[in-house]
């Protein structure tokens, strides 16, 4: 038992549990309007019901699907931009200028323009997601490429690798720690952006995911489901950042003793 308490994950779980208990106690003992702040048990019950019926997972999957499409296109775009940037001087300057310009611009600010160009549909969402992952990923991948030790490049050339085979055989794996951290930053931006975009977007269209679920339930005064939606956003974020990315890190950069020093 004592040993168990020493594990940070166990202690953090305890903190979450304590928060839930305090929440429950406050809503029960205090004079709280459940329409404004439902109790923890009520929220969890609704969440379980909505999950079991497949409604909540369906919306979550819709968000993730759009996000993954945007991230895939954004990552390929980042790779292309980076390849141009490492092969020519002008390419590097183009990349530096573009990232400097677009990085400070919150992706969500492009949504009105996207709606104008692509109309109400998934395409607009994908456009914003691409924007939110492209620049941080390109910047990181570029840093990864230019910091590959020259000795490693020479070793690859010495084996007879050149051109594309040198890129896939040496440069990409050598730059992987930076690419991974680019993916992490890209994910973090994209996840926040898609929820925000769906909130705006859901007003009119029916293809919104979790954001739309939250918006719609607020409209119907299902405050417990609004909370359930928010908890799901948090939960997915935690799972991706703390389980999936951590797992990939353990299997790759940690095992290889490579870390992207920033």
């Amino acid at each position: 038992m004592k040993k168990l308490l020493h594990r940070p994950l166990v202690r953090k779980g305890g903190i979450v549990l304590a928060l839930l208990i305090m929440w429950e106690a406050w809503t029960r003992l205090g004079d709280v309007n459940p329409l404004l702040f439902p109790s923890a048990s009520q929220v969890l019950a609704s969440m379980i019901r909505s999950t079991a019926s497949g409604e909540l997972p369906g919306y979550a999957w819709q968000s993730l699907k759009v996000l993954l499409m945007g991230m895939a296109i954004g990552s390929v775009g980042a790779l292309v931009l980076t390849t141009v940037a490492v092969s020519t001087r002008l390419g590097a300057e183009i990349l530096e200028t573009l990232t400097a310009m677009f990085n400070p611009l919150p992706a969500i600010a492009l949504l009105p323009l996207a709606l104008l160009w692509f109309g109400l549909g998934v395409n607009s969402l994908i456009f914003v997601i691409i924007h939110s992952v492209l620049w941080p990923m390109a910047l990181n991948t570029y840093t990864g490429f230019v910091t590959v030790p020259p000795t490693l490049k020479r070793v690859g050339q010495n084996f007879g690798l050149c051109g594309w085979r040198l890129v896939t055989g040496i440069l990409l794996p050598a730059a992987f720690p930076y690419i991974l951290s680019g993916l992490k930053i890209g994910w973090a931006f994209a996840w926040r952006t898609i929820i925000a975009a769906e909130l705006v977007f859901g007003v009119a269209a029916r293809q919104g995911g979790l954001g739309w679920f939250i918006y719609q339930n607020r409209f119907d005064l299902n405050t417990d489901l609004v909370f359930a939606g928010l908890l799901t956003v948090i939960l997915i974020g935690l799972v991706v950042e703390n389980l999936i990315f951590k797992w990939v890190e353990r299997k790759t950069v940690l095992r290889w003793g490579m870390s992207a020093a920033h």
């Binding site: 030790p149 000795t151 490693l152 020479r154 070793v155 010495n158 040496i170 794996p173 050598a174 992987f176 790759t252 290889w256 003793g257 490579m258």
Partner: peptide, 12 residues
């Protein structure tokens, strides 16, 4: 070529 640098092995 065998280099002086220890980083000539592929870390991955």
């Amino acid at each position: 070529v065998i280099f002086q640098e220890f980083d000539q092995l592929l870390p991955w």
